[in-house]
Amino acid sequence: MKETFTFLRNFLRHPTQVGAIAPSSPGLVKAMVDGFDWQSARNIVEFGPGTGVFTEAVLDRMHADAKFFAIERSAELVEATRARCPNAIVYEDSVTNVAELCQRESMDGVDSVICGLPWASFSQGLQDEIMDAMLDVLQPGARFSTFAYWQGLALPAGRRFATRLDQTFSSVQRSHTVWRNLPPAFIYRCVC
């Protein structure tokens, strides 16, 4: 319950940085992580771990030889993720600095990005800046997954993001709807 209040407090303080009022549900976490080949993924980055629900699932599934780190802007959410996942490397930073953080972690390129950022809340400039920073580190064939809330598709930024995905990746698929999430959501599963 404490993490729900932490999440809600961060949403109220920074609604354009935290896109929901509650952490992702177990069903959304499962739908998100099921889209990756954890046996072959070696360089994994998480954007916007929030309270660490995806982080925990990634750490449970990733190969012993894989490297992983997460990037979160909110100091309070960094603390929450570190408390949930004390073995995880979590940077309090902007995802636009992903290339520098990859160098720090000795990652030559990234093959998997799991993302909890609220794309439908972002301006076009910020969407482009984050996407370009990510594309600079993604290897050919890399996987990128992020979730979206259905109501976000009604927003211009949500539609713009969906179009950008289609223009950027060789494959973009949508998962089933996870109805037991607040609010209901689906996963974009993309391949370079």
Rank of each mutant, 00 (worst) to 15 (best):
R42T: 05
S74I: 07
M62L: 10
V58P: 00
Y91F: 15
I71P: 12
M62P: 04
A66G: 07
A185K: 01
S123D: 10
A99F: 03
A66Q: 11
A185Y: 05
G109Q: 14
R189L: 15
L117P: 02
Q167E: 14
V78L: 04
G50S: 10
E105V: 03
A157Y: 04
G109D: 15
N87L: 12
R159Q: 11
V33C: 04
L165K: 12
V33F: 01
G125S: 14
D37A: 12
E100M: 05
V137L: 06
D93A: 15
L59F: 10
H176Y: 14
H63E: 12
S175P: 07
A66L: 01
H176P: 01
R160Q: 12
C85H: 02
E76H: 02
G19W: 06
D128P: 00
K2Q: 15
Q103E: 15
G52E: 05
I21Y: 14
V78M: 12
I187Q: 03
Q103G: 10
H176G: 06
Q39A: 13
G27P: 00
F144L: 13
T81D: 08
S112E: 03
F186A: 08
C190S: 10
L28A: 05
H14I: 01
P183H: 12
S170P: 00
A154Q: 09
A162G: 08
W179L: 03
A88Q: 09
S24W: 00
R84V: 01
M131D: 02
M62K: 14
D166R: 13
L135I: 04
E92C: 11
P118E: 07
S94I: 03
F36G: 04
R174C: 08
I114W: 05
Q139G: 00
V95S: 14
F122V: 11
V29E: 02
S170Y: 03
P118G: 08
V137K: 07
L8D: 06
S171G: 04
N97V: 00
F47I: 11
F161K: 05
F11P: 02
H14Q: 08
G158C: 06
L12W: 07
L126N: 03
F36H: 12
S25Q: 00
A120V: 06
A120Q: 12
H63Q: 12
R189I: 02
A148E: 07
W179F: 02
